[in-house]
Design a protein around this nucleic acid. Structure first.
Lengths: 165, 165
DNA sequence: GATGCTTCGTTATGTTATAACATGGACGAG
DNA sequence: CTCGTCCATGTTATAACATAACGAAGCATC
């Protein structure tokens, strides 16, 4: 009874996603962390999702492989992936998206510092931006208050181009 | 058995807060909405709080006056105050702050569209900004994507001037 | 005083997140 | 080798946040 039954069913995700998982695994290895099976599966689910899944959506899907997965299972994986800069949490949705911030990014957690998200209220699509002007304006405004920025959450809700028909 | 027992104990909040409540009541009246007793009390509690209270903190405090207050009691009041632009929800904290956006603001819900919040992770203080440069940068970035902004959530975590000592 | 509207009370439940402690496996030091 | 340590995970329970659904009370208007 092998968990990996045959060559072709080893990879539960489409090739494009498997490729990104491979990249992610490599990136973790480089940093001395491990993209374990559970973490890899969760990342895969987030990459494969048509729209940003919540923790309990992921939990349900994860049970395909881990019948007894419980909330801590998923939250631990999400924490890890967030720390590694592989995913972002969208606060307004309590949902998670893959990080699209520079594909070759190798600085882990710092990825999350400066991103902006456009959330379409109709189709649910989330687009990640990395706009320097916004970052600069925000830095200036904070500095004017003597405030030292450690982490930003910039989430914009509205209508995406496609849904403005 | 009068709920209002004596002249001096009628006002449960400090004078400065009572004054703001009075203003708020007036503003609601002007708009054809009513700052009822419960709503007024919740707003007062938020104004009086040393740091942003969560819904259940407020609920507990509200029970001083309404022994049987339940979650819907507080959430309804919070929804109303948010719609009226009298408070803001800080998503990162699931907590609420008074709106400090132009004291004479009279355009209700629109208040919330464009504000930025600096959250000190040490003292918990939240400062509301209204920085045009940020708004402009964000508008441009959104426009470049064909995205129509309806609502923004900009929350920055870090250290306030006082806590950087 | 009937009608319609907003507000509020009440019960129940849904949703998101964490605490606390036990288990198991990898790996180096002795 | 086997002990201890570290990391990841399993497991149970509960905390924290939020809403659904329905009915009754207040009040403005006709």
């Amino acid at each position: 009874m092998d968990k990996h039954q045959s060559g072709t069913t080893d990879a539960p995700f489409p090739a494009a996603i498997e490729a990104r998982l491979e990249q992610a695994e490599q990136a973790c290895f480089t940093r001395g962390t491990r993209l374990t099976e559970t973490r890899r599966q969760v990342l895969g689910l987030i990459l494969a999702a048509p729209k940003p899944p919540g923790a309990y959506d992921l939990l349900e899907q994860l049970r395909v492989w881990h019948r007894n997965a419980a909330p801590p299972t998923i939250y631990r994986a999400l924490d890890f992936l967030t720390e590694q800069g592989l995913i972002h949490k969208i606060e307004r949705l309590s949902a998670f998206v893959p990080c699209t911030h520079r594909l070759n990014c190798d600085h882990g957690a710092e990825c999350g510092h400066r991103a902006q998200f456009l959330i379409c209220r109709v189709c649910g699509h989330v687009r990640e931006l990395e706009d320097l002007d916004i970052e600069i304006a925000l830095s200036r405004a904070a500095q004017a208050q003597g405030f030292r920025i450690e982490l930003t959450t910039i989430e914009v809700e509205g209508l995406c181009a496609a849904c403005r028909s």
